[in-house]
Write a protein that binds this DNA or RNA. Structure first.
Lengths: 112, 112
DNA sequence: TATCGTTATATCCGTACAAATATAACGAAA
DNA sequence: TTTCGTTATATTTGTACGGATATAACGATA
C-alpha cells in the first residue's frame, strides 16, 4: 500500500529513438512558439540540446516532423508538419493509456 | 510501419525509487549467488554501485528485501527475503504485461 | 586467536556529458 | 545593400557521476 508505479515510453525507428517525453515536449513548444530557439528558451534547455533533439527526430522519422526555415522575415522559424502533429497526438494518447494500465496492474496486486 | 515502442517502468515509495529494471537484475543476481559482491561481479558493475542500489532498495521498501550478514562462514552474504522474492515476481509480471499492452497500443494506430 | 571473504564506507580521480560561447549562413524586408 | 533573428555548427569550459582504490568491522571456523 502506498507504492506508485511510473513509466517512460518511447518510440524507436530502426534502433534510433524517434519520440520520447522530452522530444514531445519540444515539439509542442515548437508548435506554440513557431521557432526552435524560442521553444528551447521556453523549456529552459540550451539551443544546442534542442537542435540535437529535433535533428534526431527528423532523421529518425519516416516523414518530416518539422519544416525549418533559415533567414527571411523574423529570421526564420520551425513549424510542425501534419505528420508531426499526428505523432505527438499518438504518443500522448498511448502514454496516458499506459499510465492508467499500469495503475490497474499495480492495484491488482496491492498486497505488497 | 516499422516503429517499435519501448518502455521503462519503476515502482516508487514516498518519492523514492524502490524497484526498476537494474534493481531487479541485482536482486535476481543476489538470489543466484548468495552475496552482494558476487552479484556485482556477475553483472559487471562496481560493488559500490551495487551496494548503493541495494541500500536504496531496502530503505525504500516497507519490509526488508534482503538480509545481509557480515562475517562468519564465507565472510557473510546476502539473500532475498520472501518479500523480496514477491516484489521481483510482481515487477517482472507487470513489466511483461506492459510490453504486450504497448505493442497492442502501437498496432492500433499503425497508420503512422 | 588467526584467518578469510564478506559487508560497509570514505576518498580520490578520470571521463563523458551538458552548458556556455562563438560564429557562419541565410533570406525577406526596409 | 544593410539589418535582423533565426537555423546550423564547432569549440571550449565546467561539473556531476561512476570507477577505482583503500580500509575498517565483522563473526564462524579451524
Amino acid at each position: 500500500m502506498g507504492y506508485k508505479i511510473k513509466s517512460r515510453i518511447w518510440i524507436e525507428s530502426d534502433n534510433n529513438v524517434l519520440l520520447g517525453e522530452g522530444r514531445v515536449h519540444l515539439l509542442k513548444a515548437i508548435d506554440n512558439t513557431g521557432s526552435l530557439s524560442k521553444a528551447a528558451k521556453s523549456l529552459n534547455i540550451s539551443y544546442k540540446k534542442a537542435w540535437q533533439l529535433l535533428d534526431s527526430v527528423n532523421k529518425s522519422a519516416k516523414k518530416p516532423v518539422t519544416i525549418n526555415s533559415i533567414g527571411g522575415k523574423g529570421g526564420g522559424g520551425a513549424e510542425l508538419t501534419d505528420y508531426g502533429k499526428s505523432l505527438v497526438k499518438a504518443f500522448d494518447e498511448i502514454n496516458r493509456n499506459c499510465w492508467s494500465f499500469l495503475d490497474k496492474e499495480l492495484a491488482k496486486i496491492e498486497n505488497i
